[in-house]
Design a protein around this nucleic acid. Structure first.
Lengths: 153, 153
DNA sequence: CTCAATGCAAATCATTTGCACACCC
DNA sequence: GGGTGTGCAAATGATTTGCATTGAG
């Protein structure tokens, strides 16, 4: 959920990015950005495509794929590959850095923040003398264990 | 690199798993297991397939895919999706739990162990009252920064 | 003997690409 | 106007699936 003001902010972030990189400011790019930020939770390209088609936007999957790449590059969106198959995306401008807990049986995804991950990254950067550009920490769990008896022990 | 003794150990682990799950102990499964453990570093299905073809094994990609799934299920192998495209695998029986640092420009992959990741997992398990079955922590960095000047600052 | 497992080739499916047209600069 | 970006449809590529055949139990 974003307000009109929020929409203005993210649009200006995109504009800055497009200007800086000499890309055109097409209407499609702004439409996609708006709808991305209207999505709830994590979503895939196809669900966004269907949604926009239903709203009578004239848009193609190809353009959505292209635009998602720009949105990821401009830090407005994060892309995830939690499992095989399609990638999932999430708007990231108003959220602070978080990691993910994936329930493999219900497909639920929960987010968590733990400051210790940053400490680990700091150590790695010093150890290898590099700069970490991004990280992904995915924890996989199951809500309903295959063997309930084992789960109790 | 594995010794003959190591090969016996991993073969017996596979045997135990196949018995326990009522799967047949086919020669292909043991051949694939042996060659998997002879691979250096992380590898993909196709490189394993080519290698086995060159060694004159009669094997198909389909069988390798099926067998890799068994090897992952039996904890003998770990599967990774570091980037889009093909999955990478690594034998895991003789290695202790580690995480990965991926260099996006050189495709190099380094491993590291940090005990704090276990502490994070412990916290998540308590917070959500669940059992984490596995996790992946991938840190992405670049050896040769796009903008060397920025890298210095 | 029987049915799970194999090899092969065709099918799948998310994503990418080629191309003619549209519209941002 | 010129060329980047778009929509559409066809291509791609890793993985999966169907099916006739093989071989483990």
């Amino acid at each position: 959920m974003t307000t009109t003001k929020d929409d203005d902010i993210i649009a200006s972030v995109l504009t800055a990015y497009l200007n800086e990189h000499g890309h055109r400011k097409t209407t499609e790019r702004y439409h996609i950005l708006k709808e991305v930020y209207a999505m709830e939770g994590h979503f895939n390209v196809d669900s966004l495509y269907i949604l926009m088609k239903n709203k009578n936007y004239r848009v193609s999957r190809a353009t959505i794929y292209n635009t998602m790449e720009l949105l990821v590059a401009s830090q407005l969106v994060q892309k995830h590959q939690f499992r095989k198959g399609m990638a999932l995306y999430e708007p990231s401008y108003f959220n602070r850095q978080h990691d993910h807990l994936i329930f493999t049986d219900t497909n639920e995804i929960k987010e968590f923040c733990d400051p210790r991950i940053q400490h680990i990254k700091d150590t790695i950067e010093k150890t290898f003398d590099i700069t970490i550009e991004k990280h992904t920490l995915y924890c996989y769990a199951r809500r309903h264990p295959e063997n309930p008896k084992e789960a109790l022990s």
